[in-house]
Write a protein that binds this DNA or RNA. Structure first.
Lengths: 239, 239
DNA sequence: ATTACTACTAAACGAGTAC
DNA sequence: TGTACTCGTTTAGTAGTAA
């Protein structure tokens, strides 16, 4: 996940592409020698040349080599890469939506209440519609241990949440809930869910996912699991 | 100039800082292990550790090492680095002001007209006020040779320019002119100037600078010189 | 568990140079 | 002039491991 080691390389490329953009390569064809470009990026002529070849290979620029240097223009793909970087930065720097919070907790076995509630059709349908997946009938219980994680947990209360409506049937009333999209152990999309009324325990989070997490992640009681929690409305990255 | 090879290193650091920002390190203290961070940046635990040490050394983050990992927060300096990157990208991607144009021409010796005009007090005062420097009494003449440079020269006509007003004295009339801030040979701040009425020759540009460029750059006729021309209103980078 | 050192490997860089 | 190849050097990255 997290598009891995290509990330660092991507930034190196973005660096050169940005430098070319400074010279106007987004708007028009720019003529430059590799020697001149090298000066601008603070590298050797050879390195500049290699960079250009690489950028051309990945399709971020079009290049024409002439006697007097290269004619360079950023491609659509190249420009949109820069734009993507730009909007990523915008999101981080000036977003009203908070950045995701990463919690860590220890697996423990509950009393099967999670399974009971999740399998109630009324809840289940909401999960399906609002979370975008059909939850495995059961929750993974995580106990937050460190002071830091408890602090983060409290911060979650101010996160915009996905509201789950309660209902009543012939037997009893079922309360409201709050959900947050989440990524579990960097591997699985899912969500965490808090029941509103039974304030079970502030140091416990319950995790929903379309799969049986305990099995897929080979979890045993006491193991630590990281959950990245997203505010409602933000998109979770692909895993 | 162009803050040299540190540029690439700076981008590497910005890369990590951005990743930390994604985790929320701009807004709050983030707890992470170097191992986890390594996963996110697609590198080894050791590399993540080295990066963090480096970022702390340059003062972009504050870090506290605990048993369970590092508590990290971006410093003011770090956040403003990200912001600088962001606004640089904004400028390149969504600016109404065009990117600077780099022209290349061959030095040639004119008829001393440049010196004559520049030394006219009425012009000279405008240069001082509008360009921010007192021009050396003489212009460096550059002949554009390639088709590409002529094309760029024509694009300049649509650049916002610094207008120089003409005047008349007892003897004759002196016409209007257009200036663009420029950086000559990556070394000296200056400007290029076009006379409006005597459309001398479209393939010739005249360069003003506070210094005697021919001497400072040890130029001889026929040598090629690069001039980076900026639209009026944009700031030229420091040299 | 962590972090981060040392020693080694892999990758990037740049000098020389062919075209 | 240019670009871009080979190849030796430098730098970045990782494995192993101590604290």
């Amino acid at each position: 996940m997290f598009d891995s080691s290509l990330d660092a390389k991507r930034w190196r490329r973005l660096f050169l592409l940005y430098k070319l953009a400074e010279m106007g390569a987004c708007d028009r064809v720019v003529k430059t020698s590799t020697e001149y470009l090298a000066q601008r990026i603070g590298a050797s002529q050879q390195t500049a040349s290699r960079y250009l070849i690489e950028l051309e290979r990945v399709g971020w620029i079009k290049r024409k080599i002439t006697r007097e240097g290269c004619l360079i223009k950023a491609t659509e793909a190249g420009v949109s890469e820069l734009k993507r970087l730009h909007s990523s930065l915008s999101k981080v720097l000036e977003s009203k939506v908070p950045q995701p919070i990463t919690l860590e907790g220890q697996v423990f076995t509950g009393f099967g209440e999670g399974a009971y509630y999740v399998s109630k059709e009324h809840y289940r349908r909401q999960f399906r519609e609002k979370l975008g997946f059909d939850p495995y009938p059961g929750t993974l219980n995580l106990k937050l241990t460190s002071e830091y994680d408890l602090m983060l947990r409290r911060e979650l209360d101010s996160f915009p949440a996905i509201e789950i409506k309660g209902f009543r049937n012939e037997a009893r009333t079922y309360g409201d809930g709050r959900c947050y999209p989440a990524i579990i152990a960097n591997k699985f999309k899912g969500a965490i869910v808090f029941a509103m009324r039974t304030h079970y325990d502030d140091s416990v989070i319950e995790v929903l996912a379309p799969v049986y997490l305990r099995g897929k992640l080979k979890l045993k009681d006491g193991q630590k699991v990281r959950v990245e929690v997203y505010p409602a409305g933000s998109e979770t990255p692909e895993v």
